[in-house]
């Protein structure tokens, strides 16, 4: 706010505005008040619809379940249950799934983002549009569309058969492969964008300097481009791994609901078992995991805000 005040005053002086500084102050005060009111709206909204339910969830996670009800208590049983046996294994499996799916997304998205940033010049807007437009349609519809393409007698089967890459009916649905294809397809746009932004901002002179000093293109990539794109990679990890911790649509539609993930187990606690405390404990554990991921990524990219063109 004070920065803004200063900016305004300095602009006034610089432009030789006729209005005296004193004349502007009341309007700035009203402005400031409006700002506060405007800020209060989302704050209250968040407090009411985010913090309050979160508080209830945390409180529930220490309670005991009575089929559809909760008795408040201070037990750690739910956490013990969520971290041991089948649920513990599911937790680990989900973490591995999110990590590998996220890595796969970045592996596919990086070359695309690199190409966009380095090679597209004038058609950049068009290229970015082509990548982003599908993302504006409903997630569920995109996954269902992929389901049709991958199904028997679907387009993918015909294309592969025509290209002699496969023969006979394609039975890829209801498998882990289909799940990973679906994940990459669905999450690719949001993986590309942060990578593109960061690659686009790497100053050309740095790359030229690297070449002048005798580095090959490969070395330039490994020692200049890749390290400088770390914040983009970190953001992409965040944008893909976090939602994947709760992913349940793709495994269900493309993976035949096999190899249960945490999202499915968690929602089943609420919707079917009516075991709110256990579901809450799982939700809190996921939140803690996400907080840890965010902290780790923040450390990786620390200091980057000062670097740059």
């Amino acid at each position: 706010m004070s920065d803004r005040l200063q900016d305004l005053t300095s602009t006034n002086t610089a432009s030789g505005d006729n209005l005296s500084a004193g004349g502007r102050v009341p309007s700035i005060v009203t402005h400031r008040l409006t700002d506060h009111v405007l800020a209060a709206v989302p704050t209250i909204w968040l407090a009411l619809f985010f913090l309050a339910p979160l508080g209830v969830t945390v409180a529930f996670s220490f309670g005991r379940s009575t089929f559809g009800g909760v008795v408040f208590d201070l037990t750690l049983d739910n956490y013990r249950n969520a971290l041991s046996g089948f649920y513990g294994a599911t937790f680990v499996r989900t973490l591995l799934f999110a990590a590998s799916a996220s890595a796969l997304c970045i592996a596919v998205a990086y070359p695309v983002a690199y190409f966009l940033a380095r090679r597209t010049r004038r058609r950049r807007g068009l290229a970015a549009g082509l990548i982003l437009v599908p993302y504006f349609s409903s997630f569920l519809i995109r996954v269902m569309a992929l389901h049709m393409l991958l199904s028997r007698d679907g387009l993918v089967e015909h294309v592969l058969n025509t290209l002699w890459l496969h023969s006979g009916p394609l039975d890829i649905l209801d498998s882990q492969t289909a799940v990973f294809i679906g994940i990459v397809y669905a999450y690719l746009p949001i993986t590309i964008v942060p990578l593109y932004v960061v690659l686009d901002r790497i100053p050309q002179p740095l790359l030229e300097a690297s070449r002048d000093l005798g580095a090959s293109r490969f070395k330039t990539f490994v020692f200049v481009t890749l390290p400088l794109s770390r914040p983009g990679i970190a953001t992409s990890v965040l944008l893909t791994a976090v939602p994947m911790l709760g992913e349940m649509v793709i495994p269900r539609l493309l993976g035949g609901s096999k190899g249960v993930l945490l999202g499915q187990v968690l929602s089943a606690q609420y919707l079917q078992s009516q075991n709110y405390p256990l579901g809450s404990a799982m939700a809190v554990l996921i939140l803690i995991t996400i907080a840890l991921i965010v902290t780790a990524l923040a450390r990786v990219t620390k200091g980057f805000s000062e670097v740059g063109p």
Partner: peptide
């Protein structure tokens, strides 16, 4: 039945996990 529904649901999760 609230006494046994959990057993069914959890076993189902385990069956689906075993298929993966």
């Amino acid at each position: 039945n609230p006494d046994t529904i959990d057993a069914y649901l959890q076993a189902q999760n385990e069956i689906q996990a075993a298929a993966g």
